[in-house]
Design a protein around this nucleic acid. Structure first.
Lengths: 229, 229
DNA sequence: ATAATAGTGTCTGTAAGACAGTATGGT
DNA sequence: ACCATACTGTCTTACAGACACTATTAT
């Protein structure tokens, strides 16, 4: 086996698929590119991995830099790596994409790097207006999120620390793009052991009976899973 | 945003978690390292990504080089990337790990690179005898394989092109490490639409009634999934 | 005949989907 | 009073797990 220093050098970046739920629809955070290539196109936020940081750290740092969010609530996980030889015309770049699920955040651009940043509904992102291979990365991220809601407690990452069953259901409906029966959903999530912890608090939203307020429980999976059919 | 050529250079490798089922147990393909660091330790097969090839191509090439297998049967997918700053003492290396599920192969070492290669039962691999962070990568690969058998037709990737229900069940039992009820398993997999295609062929294994021989069907998921409890 | 494996039928408990009905607030 | 939302209970159907039973081969 040969020594690493004899082998081709790559630039390594992290790209972020940051998803949130706003106004009943799944949104992704995009930035407008200020330079060539792809000047003026929308792109996923991201940046280069520094010499001394792990991939996960780099993703968290870029998230904070570009959105002003110190990923306390929410969820960050590695999505996958993209390294087609021609994906960046300047040189060989491997991007390690990460998926972030965040509660509804204050308008972006609080950050620094990007010329402009915006939340865009995922079903209104035209694939050909995204830079590089970001349309593929976005599609993979959305699919991962949709799949994970089935068997993991991750939907709560889209909510504030305290939330109602209706808010949780709204997340599922936005991410899956279909209506769920409120009564069966309630029965399912409240009976799943360790999924929700009742805070005792009640909350009135407009009219109607006040809803119980929950926190995330210790469960790491939902078995049997919810079905998105 | 800055130009990639101004940024730190990484070496990028692919590492392979190659799994197969032999003698009723899940095995992983390991190679003995011939050089420092970790000279003499077991490691996952792998190597450096070349200047002009995609990550997936690099993984397939390394698989062929180190095992002599031209990944026709079987399955290859990306597992995840590992890039802790100190994972290789020589320089900054990011490894894109891939998972390979292969039918029982002829003894390795048919390949070239590795000083020695061997199939090792996964539950007999001591974590601290693997080079670099390969113990973690192996654990992630095995967990991925176990999880995917639940809801995907991937178990067939461990079988020859034509196989019986009993052979398929043996795969599940080896990967999950628990016995399954042959009758319920048979009912489940034969009634899953598109999972198996009856070839009409029958096969007698020792004594007992001959078993129907199947090929993989077009199904991409098993819904509802099997449960490994 | 006996053993062994392949494959089918039946029963039971659990849970999902559909939806009636009750509880508790705002207007 | 009325409506909207939260929550509970009931019915039906589907399916997993358990296991009796039949089918077809080797010894």
């Amino acid at each position: 086996m040969d020594a690493p220093e004899d082998w081709p050098r790559f630039a390594v970046t992290v790209d972020l698929v940051v998803l949130t739920v706003r106004d009943g629809a799944l949104h992704v955070l995009l930035v407008r590119r200020g330079e060539d290539p792809w000047r003026g196109a929308w792109a996923l936020p991201g940046g280069f991995v520094r010499p001394v940081e792990d991939l996960h750290e780099a993703a968290a740092r870029e998230l904070a830099e570009e959105t002003g969010v110190h990923q306390a609530a929410g969820h960050l996980e590695q999505l996958g790596s993209y390294g087609a030889p021609d994906r960046d015309p300047r040189m060989r770049v491997v991007s390690v994409a990460h998926l972030v699920l965040a509660p509804d955040l204050p308008e972006p651009t609080a950050g620094t790097d990007a010329a402009a940043a915006a939340w865009v509904p995922v079903d209104r992102v035209a694939g050909d207006e995204l830079a590089f291979d970001h349309a593929r990365i976005l599609a993979d991220g959305v699919e991962r999120a949709r799949a994970k809601l089935e068997y993991s407690p991750l939907a709560a990452a889209f909510c504030a620390e305290r939330f109602t069953v209706a808010e949780l259901r709204a997340v599922y409906e936005a991410v899956w793009g279909r209506a769920l029966d409120p009564r069966n959903f309630h029965r399912k999530v409240t009976s799943a052991p360790g999924l929700l912890v009742d805070t005792g608090e009640r909350r009135t939203e407009g009219r109607g009976r006040p809803a119980a307020v929950y926190r995330r429980g210790p469960a790491t999976t939902i078995a049997p899973p919810l079905s998105r059919d």
